[in-house]
Design a protein around this nucleic acid. Structure first.
Lengths: 236, 236
DNA sequence: GTCTATAGTGCGATAGAC
DNA sequence: GTCTATCGCACTATAGAC
């Protein structure tokens, strides 16, 4: 799998995201014509991520927001009841899409090495495709209300556990060297996170996401894989 | 070197930091009695880092701040002319202390392996000792004015270059395997950064800073070191 | 469905008493 | 050196015209 293949298969598009949001929030969104809602939600999301990622969600005023979206203050409040609800809507829907994509693509791999590679590529490609959302979610987490923050922490821990489980299995069947799996899983996560948190650095250097995927895989495997690359029978 | 030894030698203390800040800002601080200034600057710094790291510098109001420091609004403005100047004062002084400590301790190492270990431990221990400041500086960077943001980026790039130079030297003299040094330096930085950005995760698991230092060193060295650990003569 | 105009709130910063 | 009291402003959110 490379990034282009991932994009072709994953079914990630802002259009789809906005349509899902509309259908999930028919209660709070006052506008009734689906085409209008989808068009404007697109603008609303782009503007929120852009302005927040430039100067923070709290610091983004509704006037900035109105200018960026091209909608008036009054019109904006037809789509959400408060700034806080806007935040929640974006986070919730992003989480849903991330969960769907991970769930659909993770189970295909067989054996720890293949699983580890798939999980790393999948996370990296997903964060590339939704980079503004991941950056937003990461940077705003500490400013959220307790409920939203807890969900962000849950999600962080779930990723750690996913990688830890793969590493554990690889150790159990004798394919990987023995290490603290929690620390090692955290390290993988840190390397993946760097991609969307420091995107400017990689862009500046002209590093593509596929190139970075190769790099991380090399880095991680050189720590975990034993010298002889023959898989023991226990690893399928 | 372990963390305790670092602390005993590094001369990092809030008291010292506050005294330096006072002397560097005699122009803008209206209060004249040094003892008073140092005592209150201590409160001001602790409160800023605490409140900002809980909910963001922008979201911290001067009224929250007054409550946390125990000083009135009027009193606070005797120490800085605006909220923005407070931000700048804290960033500037932190940078100065970080620069001093790195400058004093980095040159002692000889040979790429020793240099790499020293640089990693030093960065890790420094971020541990000043964790609230590093976290603050990292999370608020994108909300700063252009001048401050540029300084934060410069500092990030300088660390990358420091690690890249060590790796480059190690490769040149045949001690390290050949890799993209810029990517590898960034990876080291990402692993170090995880320590102060995700401190809650490590605390929760009871991982000490010395334990994490061993982990990172193992991780990084297993990627760079060639099989035979004998250093070629060219590496001193 | 989108607009303009504005009510009501809470902010950063200051003046002047002690 | 620190306080209380308050100014002027910019914000979020809403009401009502079109």
């Amino acid at each position: 799998m490379n990034y282009q293949e991932f994009i072709d298969n994953a079914g990630i598009s802002t259009e789809r995201l906005c349509r899902e949001i509309y259908r999930a929030n028919r209660g709070t969104i006052q506008i009734k014509k689906e085409a209008t809602v989808v068009r404007n939600l697109n603008r609303i999301f782009d503007a929120t991520l852009k302005l927040s990622n430039e100067k923070g969600f709290q610091a983004m005023t509704m006037r900035d927001f109105s200018r960026e979206t091209g909608l008036s203050l009054g019109a904006l409040y037809a789509y959400f009841a408060s700034k806080d609800e806007l935040l929640e809507m974006i986070l919730r829907q992003g989480r849903r899409m991330v969960g769907r994509v991970l769930g659909e693509h993770l189970q295909t791999a067989r054996g720890p090495v293949d699983q580890l590679e798939t999980a790393i590529r999948l996370h990296l490609y997903l964060t590339e495709a939704l980079q503004p959302w991941f950056y937003f979610s990461f940077m705003e987490a500490k400013n959220m209300n307790p409920r939203e923050r807890e969900k962000a922490i849950d999600s962080e821990m779930a990723t750690d556990r996913l990688f830890a489980a793969i590493l554990q299995e690889g150790q159990a069947c004798g394919l990987f060297r023995t290490h603290d799996v929690a620390l090692a899983a955290g390290a993988i996560k840190a390397l993946l996170q760097d991609w969307y948190v420091k995107r400017w650095k990689f862009s500046r250097r002209g590093i593509s996401v596929d190139r970075y995927a190769e790099f991380i895989l090399d880095y991680v495997m050189s720590y975990h894989l034993k010298g002889g690359k023959e898989a023991p029978a226990a690893c399928q």
